[in-house]
């Protein structure tokens, strides 16, 4: 019990005094997970659009793979990315192992199926005749896709929330490809693991609190965006 109270006191202190170590870790966490979510969006939404609207042989196999990917264990992704980026691995010459870029790659791979699967589902629940209607008032194929995405924007924001939530709270892959190097690749989750193993429960709690707060704030911002869109 004593540990918990001490932890809460220290966490409050760290937060109030804007501890540089904690700030640095927090900034990197936001940067890595934010970039990874963005990359997943850019790669994932077009594939979601393609899977929702195109028919081709083997589509159901890909859809099933994407849906499986939505529950991809981060450590598996971490292992695969680590093998690829390892100095002797196929992409080792890029020198990316134990860099924030490697963490972005791993996290983007975790978020990608989530974005693809959710945007596909969102587009598929639209009235299929809406496509005919949009073409029938003179939309080009591109304009049609953009308008359909506009129609599903509430669900797309939900997909972003899910993707960001998944990567910011992920620890296994970040540890494996980032290496939890101080001042370089240490993020809130990996730092929490380290501090807990060292017995620094107070610091671990402070970091966890920040993690929760961060996840909440980002989700809150996205949710307000979503709810404002709903009233449009």
């Amino acid at each position: 019990m004593e540990t918990i109270w001490a932890g809460i006191r220290e966490a409050t202190q760290l937060l109030l005094h804007r501890d540089p170590y904690v700030l640095e870790i927090t900034a990197l966490t936001l940067r890595v997970s934010g970039t990874a979510t963005l990359v997943a969006l850019v790669l994932g939404v077009p594939i979601g659009v393609a899977l929702a609207f195109l028919d081709f042989p083997g589509k159901s196999i890909i859809v099933a793979a994407v849906n499986t990917g939505m529950g991809l264990p981060p450590v598996v992704v971490g292992l695969v990315v680590a093998l690829m980026l390892w100095r002797s691995g196929p992409l080792g010459w890029l020198g990316l192992i134990y860099t924030p870029t490697a963490m972005v790659i791993a996290q983007a791979l975790i978020a990608w199926p989530l974005v693809t699967g959710l945007s596909m589902a969102a587009l598929q629940q639209l009235d299929p005749r809406l496509r005919w209607q949009l073409l029938g008032i003179g939309a080009s194929s591109w304009q049609m896709v953009l308008l359909l995405l506009w129609e599903t924007r509430l669900l797309l924001v939900a997909a972003i929330i899910a993707a960001f939530g998944a990567v910011i709270s992920e620890v296994g892959a970040s540890m494996m490809v980032g290496g939890n190097v101080a001042h370089h690749t240490r993020v809130l989750t990996t730092a929490t693991v380290l501090e807990t193993s060292k017995g620094n429960f107070a610091l671990a709690m402070a970091l966890s609190t920040i993690l929760l707060l961060l996840a909440y704030l980002v989700t809150f911002a996205l949710t307000s965006l979503q709810q404002r869109a709903r009233r449009l």
Binding site: D127, R129, L130, W132, W150
Partner: peptide
């Protein structure tokens, strides 16, 4: 051609705007 015509379907299918 589609930009010279206009289509109205059974359901109005208005967009959320």
């Amino acid at each position: 051609y589609r930009r010279r015509i206009a289509v109205v379907l059974q359901d109005p299918l208005l967009l959320s705007m």
